[in-house]
């Protein structure tokens, strides 16, 4: 592997254990991973809304380009070893895994920072779109201002 990162976008599920193992490197002492899953949402009125299904649409070529660029930025900014990103697309059920970001490094701080950075930018820059079905209604999920605000901390 020439590049220190790998990006996979697929309808297939992933195995977090295997992904974590593949990040293991005897010269590096830290691996930080994040896994995002399909959850039940709580509406503003406090009532639980059952997410029945989630469909993730994406712009394949641009997703690879944006995520590749984010990995390059993380590798430049922090002293990290390798990055693995897996993102599911297509139809997902409640509880299924959506996204995995794993980072290896010599020391934990760099890997935590890089993983957080990659997730913040993945959520706001990579062209994926969620369509949810809950309470028998299907709608496209709106982008959240709070996700956009998370980017400010990386400007420092």
């Amino acid at each position: 592997m020439n590049k220190a990162y790998s990006i996979k976008i697929s309808t297939e599920d992933f195995n977090v254990g295997l992904l974590q193992q593949s990040l293991h490197n005897a010269n590096l002492g830290a691996i930080v991973t994040f896994t995002g899953t399909v959850r039940d949402l709580i509406a503003d009125d406090g009532l639980a809304e059952n997410t029945q299904a989630l469909i993730i649409d994406h712009y394949p070529v641009m997703c690879q380009k944006v995520l590749g660029d984010l990995c390059e930025q993380a590798l430049t900014r922090w002293d990290i070893g390798a990055i693995l990103i897996n993102h599911r697309v297509g139809k997902l059920e409640r509880g299924e895994q959506i996204v995995f970001v794993g980072v290896s490094s010599k020391h934990r701080k760099e890997a935590f920072f890089a993983c957080d950075f990659l997730m913040d930018f993945l959520k706001t820059k990579a062209p994926f779109w969620k369509q949810e079905t809950k309470n028998n209604q299907t709608f496209w999920v709106d982008a959240k201002d709070s996700d956009q605000q998370q980017l400010e901390k990386w400007e420092r």
């Binding site: 995002g36 993730i56 994406h58 712009y59 070529v61 641009m62 380009k65 944006v66 993102h87 959506i98 996204v99 997730m119 993945l122 959520k123 706001t124 820059k125 990579a126 062209p127 994926f128 779109w129 969620k130 496209w140 999920v141 709106d142 982008a143």
Partner: peptide, 26 residues
């Protein structure tokens, strides 16, 4: 061509232009 642009960006033959709403992945 898979890079964010705006209404002032010039187009060239062969370009791929995509229109979409704010993203919601992750």
């Amino acid at each position: 061509n898979q890079d964010m642009a705006d209404e002032t960006t010039t187009l060239n033959p062969g370009d791929e232009v995509a229109f979409f709403p704010p993203v919601t992945g992750g």
